[in-house]
Design a protein around this nucleic acid. Structure first.
Lengths: 192, 192
DNA sequence: GCACGTCAGTAGACACTGTCTACCAATGGT
DNA sequence: ACCATTGGTAGACAGTGTCTACTGACGTGC
């Protein structure tokens, strides 16, 4: 515990990340976070004028974490762009399913202050990279359109899967077939 | 207003449907619904033991509404299965974007009592029909898998579009290109 | 050395939420 | 005429986010 008193601002976000990871979004009440940080319920207001801004700061950690995992998985980027998109998709789905609370928070737009500059800054480059890779993998189509459709597909799979709506119909408890189906659909089936 | 006193049970659901349509999910507090129905805040408890069960009943109306619109749009089903899936997709996206509050509620699993029998009963047949049509349109693949992936794609498009995350990147304010991209991707491009 | 203003956090109030419990008034059956 | 069940009221309770008044501590200027 070196950051026992590392500034209340970051400590609140730390507590929030732990809390949403361990207990989910509904546990992220302002007063509970303050309690676990060992301060009064009015203290967070000094750094986060509203509850939503604190939640946005916590979600921002999620996007940064996801981006870091993506970058780590891509490595030096020597693989084909097609395979790079595949690994990005797998990293995203893995993240969404192992950090369900955080993933839910990251896309609960009613809980986030979307004009929080940091949020867009942390989430946009991921999408930019995806557009770039898709454009390289399929030079024949509108990359932004296909990337958008693919992103929507991945997000939808993540959501329906966490709700269990797809295990019943697909039969397995492995989302790989779904992921491959989406990648094949949007990028075409080639090397595998 | 013939149903001025049509039984509190259905009146509460009516009020909820109006409310979520007009003001969104966050307006659906138990006490506000009771207020607008002209009863005390404890009255709903007689018919809906918990808030979630009332919300589930409201969401059920959404699924029934959506299913009715789908059936009406399909007509007698003389078109090709490929085109039938296309119309279903368009009906769904239209519904999601013109009834944003209701659509959000329908997929807010943290607000719904999933073991509410009526909910699964109202939402499953829609998916069953989709699997059936996909199987007819693409007999060469696992229909349940492709239908699941397509459904996830449509849901993701609906969500990202309502958040405005896709208008920026695709340029237009018409979701048709995205819908067509998803359909072409999962069902193959043929008649158009 | 001392007043002064700023900063960080406390404590309490307010309106609102969902749930629970005690009560009450009507209604219909025997 | 009595009684029990039904359908709804009213108040309490713990919890929430926000707002405001207040309290110390700290550094700076004089």
């Amino acid at each position: 515990m070196s950051e026992r008193n590392a500034g209340l601002r970051t400590r609140l976000v730390d507590v929030g990340v732990e809390l949403v990871t361990a207990e989910g979004v509904q546990a992220l009440s302002l007063r509970e976070i303050a309690r676990r940080a060992g301060v009064s319920h009015g203290a967070p207001r000094r750094y986060f004028p509203t509850h939503l801004e604190l939640l946005s700061a916590i979600a921002r950690r999620g996007f940064e974490d996801l981006a870091a995992r993506g970058a780590a998985a891509l490595g030096d980027g020597t693989e084909s762009s097609r395979r790079q998109v595949a690994t990005l998709g797998r990293v995203y789905l893995d993240f969404a399913l192992t950090h369900r609370g955080m993933h839910e928070l990251m896309f609960r737009h009613d809980l986030l202050e979307s004009n929080t500059l940091g949020l867009r800054d942390a989430s946009l480059p991921v999408f930019g990279l995806l557009v770039d890779l898709v454009g390289r993998a399929r030079p024949d189509v509108d990359a932004r359109l296909v990337a958008g459709a693919l992103l929507a597909n991945l997000y939808g799979i993540a959501q329906l899967w966490t709700w269990g709506s797809l295990q019943l119909t697909t039969g397995t408890d492995d989302f790989t077939p779904l992921l491959d189906a989406a990648l094949d659909a949007h990028l075409g089936r080639e090397d595998r």
